[in-house]
Design a protein around this nucleic acid. Structure first.
Length: 564
RNA sequence: UGUCCUGUGGUGUAAUUGGCAACACGUCUGAUUCUGGAUCAGAAGAGUCCAGGUUCGACCCCUGGCAGGACAACCA
């Protein structure tokens, strides 16, 4: 009985949806089929919360040898656009999921939906209501008080039918009439109080154009779309729990055959130090607090992609957060752990000095250059070495030198020795300062017998990264930090908004010096800058001027202990 | 003062038809290291919202509370 076995066994535990599916499979509920769907509304970009849902729906289908459809829930033309459709398709594909030929649109079902509505009208289960929006809202009552019956509720099916046809034909202005399901105005569930099925909207739809001027509401369109696609498990978030009786009511009253879909709800993902609602993300974009939906500080999939996150890291994250029905707030540290885990294994190492100070090796031959071997990735020694130029004048990180260091400072200080990564052990002899006392040069001597790869028995506590002054390339580096300065920007004090919780230092753009080999890297390429963090090349890069985004810092137990 | 959902270490998620609470992240030690990274070894941290009840035995079942969330768009 070893630990590895125990681990793999414990990972076999099922989440509540898997338990339901396995139970359904056992009782042969849907003929042994599992068919899910991911149903985004194309009214914004996908975020990390959607990623959880995508991984869940496609993941469940894969695990149980079923299929998962992509279905755009495009029933509100005033808020939706083709731009969003395209962005959503790109993001899902990038995450690594394939909906094959099953790319569907609720708008493809408008005609069928219309016919089904006619069926309900004929059965006396739906009616055209002539009340205004305000009247309907007022008549609905409140969660604790019943609603009032519409004066149009008992109009004859033939009359409703004729009106419904005229609604479709464009004979009435927006908001003048709606089609309502006839259910129960006294239900304690507000969604059962004769919910609206269709509203009149003379609006251009991004797919159906001007073909329709009545559009179905979510509750009507969604469940029936599930049925038309023969979805077995319709998985949505908790807030739709109260809609389930309505979801079932439509199916109950529609003479369906084949698979009867069932709705299940799980808790959406929440992440601290960010916001997740499309409305708020839209506001950040529209008011210019970020540069766009794909700003690297955004929790959107496109933002994370540009930030340097990999599909594998996001899938791993989705897996680790789990699936349940209780509200949760996931620690950003978990997301960061997932990307570090991936990049540590796969990102090539490279040296870059973010805050340079000049270091001169006094006893190193003037004009000499050595091409040193730097391991590309210690996690994958088989990837071999790269060449890194070394010379008399270098730059090191300003924070790696202290004139008057504290007790456990392992870096460079007067009289002290450190190793320069891949190069030599050096000793600091003296420093040069300007009038204001600012250090401008650090002078050292090196020991030629300590070159990397030699058998050196001397031990030094610290190893520093560096770049050669004559060879290094300047590059723009965007140091990103969390977008919000508080863990719960969604809950500001009275009178404040989440905007007030934005972190004023969420990005700090600097010019750094990077090793010359980076000149050839392309947008999207990811690296570990040794000792500082993971970075990727941004599309804003121009020839001769690379732009790097900091994905995440390395874990830093030194800084952590200093903070205490 | 309605209906529904949910309460397990700091944060998440488990506990196979009731059998003295496990895993991950985080935190803290130590070893190791040419990244104060990674890796390895280990530790602390919950007695499962509360109170009753059933039972030899309850996170799990029952009753009653309490707390949090959702629901009153012609949004999804």
């Amino acid at each position: 009985m070893n630990t590895a076995e125990n681990k793999s066994e414990s990972s076999n535990s099922l989440n509540f949806l898997e338990q339901i599916i396995e139970k359904n499979l056992k009782e042969n509920l849907h003929g042994g089929k599992v068919h899910t769907r991911f149903p985004p509304e194309p009214n914004g970009y996908l975020h990390i919360g959607h990623a959880k849902s995508i991984c869940l729906n496609f993941g469940l289908a894969k695990k149980y040898a079923g299929k998962c459809n992509l279905r755009f829930d495009d029933t509100n033309p005033t808020k939706e656009s083709i731009e969003y459709v395209n962005a959503i398709r790109e993001d899902i594909a990038w995450l690594g999921f394939d909906w094959e030929e099953r790319e569907y649109y609720a708008s493809d079902y408008f005609e069928k939906l219309y016919e089904m509505a006619v069926t309900l009208i004929n059965k006396g289960k739906a009616y055209v209501c002539d009340m205004s929006g305000e009247e309907i809202a007022a008549g609905r009552g409140t969660p604790s008080t019943p609603g009032r019956i519409s004066p149009w509720r008992d109009r004859k099916p033939e009359e409703s039918l004729a009106l419904f046809q005229k609604m479709r034909d464009g004979e009435f202005p927006d908001g003048s009439r709606v089609l309502r399901a006839k259910i129960d105005m006294t239900s304690p569930n507000m969604h059962m109080r004769d919910p609206v099925m269709y509203r009149i909207m003379h609006a251009e739809h991004h797919r159906t154009g001007a073909q329709w001027c009545i559009y179905p509401m979510y509750d009507w369109a969604h469940g029936q779309s599930d049925y038309l696609e023969q979805i077995t498990h319709s998985i949505c978030t908790l807030e739709f729990d109260v809609h389930r009786p309505l979801y079932d009511w439509f199916l109950d009253n529609l003479d369906i055959s084949g698979i009867r879909p069932r709705q299940f709800e799980f808790a959406r993902l929440n992440l601290n130090y960010t916001v997740m609602s499309k409305r708020k993300l839209l506001e950040l974009v529209e008011k210019g607090f970020v540069t766009g939906w794909d700003d690297p500080r955004m929790p959107t999939i496109s933002g994370l992609r540009r930030r340097g996150y990999t599909p594998a890291s996001i899938r791993s994250f989705s897996d680790k957060v789990g699936v349940a029905k209780r509200n949760n707030v996931i620690d950003m540290a978990l997301l960061e752990h997932c990307i570090r885990e991936d990049l540590n294994k796969n990102a090539p190492r490279v040296m870059a000095v973010l805050d340079p100070v000049r270091l001169i090796i006094d006893n190193y031959p003037e004009g000499q250059t050595e091409e040193l071997d730097g391991l590309r990735n210690p996690e994958k020694p088989e990837n071999g070495y790269r060449k890194v130029p070394f010379s008399k004048e270098l730059f090191i990180e300003r924070a790696d030198f202290m004139e008057d260091p504290p007790k456990k400072f392992f870096r460079l200080s007067p009289g002290n020795e450190v190793r320069l990564k891949y190069a030599y052990i050096i000793r600091c002899e003296h420093v040069v300062k300007d009038e204001s006392g600012h250090i401008t040069e650090i002078h050292c001597t090196y020991d030629p017998e300590t070159k990397s790869g030699m058998d050196v028995q001397r031990k030094v506590k610290g190893t520093l990264h560096w770049v050669s002054a004559d060879h290094a390339l300047p590059a723009e580096v965007r140091l990103y930090d969390r977008l919000f300065s508080v863990p719960n920007p969604d809950e500001p004090e009275q009178g404040k908004s989440f905007i007030d919780k934005l972190n004023p230092d969420s990005v700090n753009t600097i010019t750094a010096l990077v090793e010359p080999g980076l000149a050839d890297a392309s947008p999207g390429d990811k690296f570990q800058f040794e000792r500082t963090g993971y970075f990727c090349i941004d599309n804003d890069s121009k020839k001769g001027r690379q732009v790097f985004n900091r994905t995440v810092t390395l874990r830093d137990s030194w800084q952590k202990s200093m903070g205490r």
